Simulated assay, not measured.
Amino acid sequence: MHAAAAGVIFGAMKPLVFESSPSPVLFIADLHLDPSRPAATRAFLRFLDTDASSATALFILGDLFEAWIGDDARPADDPVAPALAALSARGVPIYLMHGNRDFLIGDDFCHAAQATLLTEPTRVTIDNEPVLLEHGDALCTDDSAYQAFREQVRNRDWQATFLAQPIAKRIEQARTIRQRSGEAMAGKTARIMDANADAIDQRMRDWDVQHLIHGHTHRPALHQLTINGQPGTRTVLGDWFEQGSVLRIDHGVSTLETLRLER
C-alpha cells in the first residue's frame, strides 16, 4: 500500500503515513554520486530499476551527490533526475532531504526528478510508529567548527549570494571549500565527527519518537537505546563508496542491507 498522503512537490505537506505491507519502505543516504565514481551511479540506477521499483516509498536522506552548486549547473546528460522521475511514474513516491554536500538542491531538480523535498528533520509514520528522519550532520554537535560552517552555508542570504555567481566561480569556490574541509577533517578524531549521544537523546525526546533514522557519519548500524524509559532505535545508513547501503522497513521489521558495486 502506498502512502496514505504522499504530499506534493511544492506547497504544504500533508502528514506522511505509510504501511510497509505488501511493499517495504526504503531509505538510503550518502551516495555521493559523482562522474569520478561511475560504479556508484550504475548501482544506484540498477537499484531504482529493481529493489525500489515496487517500494511503498523511497527516502533519500541527503548527500545524493558529492557536490551540488546549483540546479542550473546540472549536466545536460545527468541520468539521475530522469531515473528518479521514471520511478515516480511507476507510482513510487520519492522524498529527498538535503545533506552537507548537496544542500543547494532546489525546486528545479526536484521537479525534474519528481521528488518531494523534505525539511529537516521530518517526522513520518510507518506501520503506526512515528519515525524521525534527518541527514545527521546537525547531530554532530561536538564538532563546533563544522556546526558554525553549517549555520553559515544554510543561511538563505549566503546561498543567494553563492548562487548569483557564475558557474565557473562557484565550481572554484566549492573546490576550495572541499579542500579546506578535507584538511580540517584530517585533524579531527572520529569521536568529534560522530553524532553526539546527548543530541540524539534530546532530538528524539523533542519529537516524541522511539526511532531515528539518519546518515552522514558513514557508520551503518542499528543502535538500541533507551528514550524516556522506553526501548528505542537509532538506525544509521551507510555510504555508497565500497558498497551500497539500504534500510528496508518491511512489516515493521528494520533491516540494513548492502548492495554490491560492480567496478
Score class of each variant (00 low, 15 high):
T217M: 02
P15A: 06
L104M: 15
D77E: 09
Y95I: 04
L261D: 01
G11F: 04
V246W: 14
A39M: 09
A174R: 04
H98S: 11
N100E: 12
A86V: 02
V124N: 02
R248P: 03
P130W: 14
A43T: 02
A168Y: 09
P220R: 06
V80W: 10
N128Y: 06
T176Q: 10
I177F: 13
R205E: 13
A4M: 15
H223D: 09
T258P: 04
T176C: 12
D51E: 14
L212D: 00
S181M: 09
R248K: 07
H111M: 12
I167T: 13
A39P: 03
F18K: 00
P38C: 05
R150P: 06
A85K: 03
E183A: 05
R219D: 15
I105G: 10
S181D: 08
V25Y: 05
T161M: 10
F103A: 06
A5E: 12
T176L: 15
S23H: 15
H214Q: 12
D34H: 10
N100Q: 10
R260I: 11
D102R: 02
H251L: 07
A199G: 02
V253G: 00
A29W: 07
E183C: 05
W207K: 03
P121C: 12
S245A: 11
R101V: 01
A76Y: 04
T161D: 13
W207D: 14
A55N: 02
F162C: 03
K169W: 05
T119N: 13
R178T: 13
E172P: 03
D77T: 08
F103Q: 09
G187N: 13
M193R: 15
E134S: 12
F10Q: 11
A57G: 03
L16I: 14
A112C: 01
R37F: 10
P75G: 03
P75E: 04
D77Y: 05
Q159E: 12
L26H: 07
F10S: 10
G11V: 11
